[in-house]
């Protein structure tokens, strides 16, 4: 069972690498913010898996909870930064479809 948790941790870490590609290449700043948010979520899961390996989940679960809260607040603050960049809000190049009721 311990080997299974080690493999899970390695797999989660390997899945961070494609998202790292999006951080490095990502065309705009907000793509990078989304990718950082996803890596934060994976880090939270990884903390709990590390806690299972060290047999100290009661300690690591608090770290994971704090990390989840900080990740949420951080993404909200970063989204708030873009709030008034484009005030007239012309939504790109797509027609909107109304609901016929």
């Amino acid at each position: 069972m311990e080997n299974f948790f080690i493999l899970t941790g390695v797999a989660i870490f390997a899945l961070m690498l494609p998202i790292l590609y999006r951080i490095i290449v990502g065309p705009t700043a907000i793509d990078r913010i989304v990718a950082v948010n996803m890596i934060g979520t994976k880090t939270m899961v990884l903390l709990i898996i590390i806690g299972m390996l060290f047999k100290r989940v009661d300690m690591f679960v608090d770290f994971a909870l704090t990390y989840a809260l900080l990740n949420f607040i951080g993404s909200l603050a970063a989204a708030r930064f873009f709030d008034r960049v484009n005030p007239d809000k012309q939504i790109a190049n797509l027609e909107t479809k109304e609901q016929e009721s």
């Binding site: 797509l94 027609e95 009721s101």
Partner: peptide, 8 residues
């Protein structure tokens, strides 16, 4: 085929 929808 993305689109934007507005519902009430």
């Amino acid at each position: 085929k993305p689109s934007l929808v507005r519902i009430k």
